[in-house]
Amino acid sequence: MADIITDEMIDYVSILAKLELTPAEKEQAKNDMAKMLDYVDMLNELDTSGTEPMYHVFPVSNVFREDVVVNGDDSEGMLKNAPERKDNFYKVPRTVD
């Protein structure tokens, strides 16, 4: 493996991903990520200088909606997806001290 993921890197990525990893999981993740980067290195070997980047899988543009209200109140249906609810609100653990 050419790429090595450092402890600092895996800790930083854990913060970004909001994950708490055990030491064993950390080692496993380091290994997996290094393999992914190796694969990207392989892709980087290709000469893409004349190729337009592809941003969308279909050759479409200007897919628009008119500005008309169609959706009504389906808060009951929507709140069924809530981890927890209080009155008509979604409820999550406190985000501030």
Partner: peptide, 10 residues
Amino acid sequence: HDEEGTLIDY
């Protein structure tokens, strides 16, 4: 924010 948690209105 209330005592029990954070409430969200989307």
